[in-house]
Design a binder for these strands. Structure first.
Lengths: 151, 151
DNA sequence: CACAATTGAATTGTGTGCAACCATTGCCAT
DNA sequence: ATGGCAATGGTTGCACACAATTCAATTGTG
């Protein structure tokens, strides 16, 4: 069998599923006025709303596996939208803390129904979800692991 | 439980896995001199190398779920790289046929080892692969299915 | 046949991703 | 202290994605 058959490529199945997922979020997030990657940033901020200072850009990058080249302009847009503020750390002025504004914090309530609505659209068996999550996480870890030239 | 927990979001697991996969292809495709989306286009062209005319842009878009806004500039780059040629259909001059050049066709041989090398990096049980593919395809279909406002 | 509606690509504009580079800041061994 | 070095975030440049628009070519309808 042809090893290059598109429909047999895991990469394409992932690529398609990921784009379909992002597209499905679009109308729900439009109600909040943000994009999907911006939503991911807000998830991290909402998770850490106990931190009075907020979360550093470095920590956001680690959590989402995004570098400053992606995050910097994205955070600028979130700032302009009034969802977050940025301020340099007084401890170490290399670091920049990101914190939700009152409006950004309030958006959390409106976002709480989003996962369930997406979950319904997937029509997946809820019992199958944890296994799929675990498989994808393992896969991601394995792919990130071998940075070696070519096993 | 917090419904907004990042690590419990299928969307983020997919997003991470897809980006890790694309990143993993990078060094392998660098040997061919193309990017990952360009590789996907070449897969479709290689699949249809029996067609003497090639494949239309429309068909490429259907196969990859990409619109002309993405494909047009991507095809321009593949053309400049010498991998493909484009020519308008004589039957219906709205359509544009895309065909691999000799160089583009020859690259197929060099690409044949790529899926196996990626497969090794995933460290997935080969028996688990078909099930995962099926799950992802079903998921993609379900997400594309409901274009309705908000089930 | 005229002509409105549709189709297929290309173009434009916005927002990611990511590599490469840069400026500033902190750290540390001399 | 101080010169070298790592850490942090910003900037630049390129390549997607995708919505919206444009334009030419075709099709459907009376």
């Amino acid at each position: 069998m042809n090893p290059l058959d598109l429909d047999r490529q895991l990469c394409f199945a992932l690529y398609s599923a990921s784009r379909a997922m992002t597209a499905s979020y679009k109308d729900l997030l439009a109600e909040l006025g943000i994009t999907y990657p911006q939503y991911l940033v807000m998830l991290v901020l909402w998770e850490n709303d106990a931190e009075p200072e907020g979360v550093t850009v470095k920590r956001l990058g680690e959590r989402l596996q995004l570098d400053s080249g992606t995050l910097s302009p994205l955070l600028s847009r979130l700032e302009k939208l009034g969802f977050i503020t940025r301020h340099r750390s007084t401890e170490d002025s290399r670091s920049v803390f990101v914190r939700p504004t009152a409006e950004g914090a309030a958006a959390k309530e409106r976002a709480e129904c989003v996962p369930a609505r997406i979950g319904a659209r997937t029509q997946l068996d809820p019992d199958a979800l944890p296994g799929l999550l675990e498989t994808l996480r393992t896969l991601t870890g394995n792919l990130r692991g071998d940075h070696a030239p070519t096993p």
